[in-house]
Amino acid sequence: MDVVTSQTIGVEVNGTTYEREVEARRLLIHLLRDDLDLTGSHIGCDTGNCGACSVILDRTLVKSCMVLAIQADGASIETVEGLAGEEQLTPLQQAFSDHHALQCGYCTPGMLMSATALLRENPKPSDEEIAKAIQGNICRCTGYWNIFEAIKAASE
């Protein structure tokens, strides 16, 4: 049984395939931000509480500060950079803009990924389901109401 301290891994991020050698101790968020220069996913608390680092890993919403990069070998990852097309925001992103659902913007990438994951699974969530879906994402501007309204608008 191989026990490794580093390994070359392959990941597909937003449709692009990357190969990188990573140390076993490297967190997924650092692979994304530091190795792949995808700095849209943020590090807020680094303790798994704030959700600013949320990404979709193999169709599952996760906090990328609590996943090792080496665990993502062979995985398909979606980050906030993958949401919009060249010029076109997603309906959810447009709703965030229309409803002033971002103030400082720090939590926004994580909020967008959580809401994206929600609307994929449940295109018409109830108010309670929206609130539950972003429970793992903290907005320190406390602008939750506009975020809630934006997700609701995007679901209609």
């Binding site: 191989d2 101790r25 080496i70």
Partner: peptide, 17 residues
């Protein structure tokens, strides 16, 4: 955050683990 150095194994069976 950078974790302390650690090695990693991903066994495919209980026996390997």
């Amino acid at each position: 955050m950078l974790l302390s150095e650690v090695a990693y194994a991903r066994p495919a069976t209980l026996e390997q683990a």
